[in-house]
Simulated scan of single mutants.
Amino acid sequence: MVREIVRDVIFLGQKSTDATVADIKTAMDLVDTLEANRNACVGMAANMIGVKKRIIAINDNGFTKLMINPTITAKSSKFETEEGCLSLSGVRPTTRYKNITVKYLDMNFKEHTEKFTGWTAQIIQHEVDHCDGIVI
Rank of each mutant, 00 (worst) to 15 (best):
66 L>S: 09
52 K>Q: 13
77 S>F: 15
135 V>P: 04
71 T>N: 09
108 N>A: 14
118 G>E: 10
107 M>T: 09
97 Y>I: 05
89 S>V: 13
82 E>F: 11
32 D>Y: 07
116 F>T: 02
23 D>V: 02
3 R>F: 01
96 R>N: 04
80 E>G: 09
68 I>W: 02
77 S>G: 12
132 D>I: 03
80 E>V: 11
86 L>E: 03
2 V>G: 07
43 G>R: 02
74 A>C: 05
29 D>H: 09
102 V>W: 02
60 D>H: 11
121 A>G: 02
52 K>R: 15
124 I>L: 09
40 A>E: 15
73 T>W: 01
72 I>D: 01
43 G>Y: 02
54 R>Q: 12
97 Y>S: 08
63 F>I: 14
6 V>A: 03
34 L>G: 05
59 N>L: 10
116 F>N: 00
121 A>T: 00
49 I>W: 00
8 D>M: 09
16 S>A: 14
63 F>V: 15
72 I>A: 05
116 F>A: 00
69 N>F: 05
86 L>C: 01
72 I>N: 04
16 S>R: 02
74 A>M: 11
116 F>S: 00
44 M>H: 04
29 D>W: 01
37 N>I: 00
48 M>N: 06
78 K>F: 10
124 I>Q: 05
121 A>N: 00
114 E>D: 10
136 I>F: 14
35 E>F: 13
114 E>G: 00
131 C>S: 08
17 T>F: 10
83 E>G: 07
19 A>L: 06
29 D>S: 10
103 K>W: 06
104 Y>G: 06
131 C>E: 03
80 E>C: 03
13 G>R: 07
117 T>I: 12
5 I>K: 08
107 M>Y: 11
108 N>D: 15
60 D>R: 12
6 V>F: 01
108 N>H: 14
43 G>F: 00
134 I>Q: 04
131 C>N: 13
110 K>F: 10
54 R>D: 01
136 I>E: 11
42 V>D: 07
70 P>S: 03
98 K>W: 06
79 F>W: 08
12 L>H: 06
80 E>P: 01
115 K>P: 02
52 K>D: 01
44 M>I: 11
110 K>Q: 15
34 L>F: 08
113 T>C: 05
8 D>V: 09
50 G>C: 03
130 H>F: 08
22 A>Q: 13
93 P>F: 07
35 E>H: 13
52 K>P: 04
21 V>R: 14
98 K>Y: 11
85 C>K: 00
20 T>S: 15
46 A>T: 00
77 S>A: 13
62 G>Q: 07
22 A>M: 10
7 R>P: 02
59 N>R: 01
74 A>R: 12
93 P>R: 13
11 F>A: 10
53 K>Y: 04
134 I>V: 14
116 F>E: 00
26 T>D: 08
7 R>M: 08
44 M>Q: 04
63 F>R: 15
21 V>W: 08
75 K>R: 14
105 L>D: 09
92 R>G: 10
33 T>S: 12
16 S>K: 02
101 T>C: 09
130 H>G: 07
133 G>T: 02
65 K>F: 05
99 N>D: 15
129 D>Y: 04
58 I>P: 05
10 I>N: 13
86 L>N: 01
64 T>R: 12
19 A>N: 06
71 T>H: 11
58 I>M: 06
56 I>A: 03
18 D>W: 06
132 D>H: 06
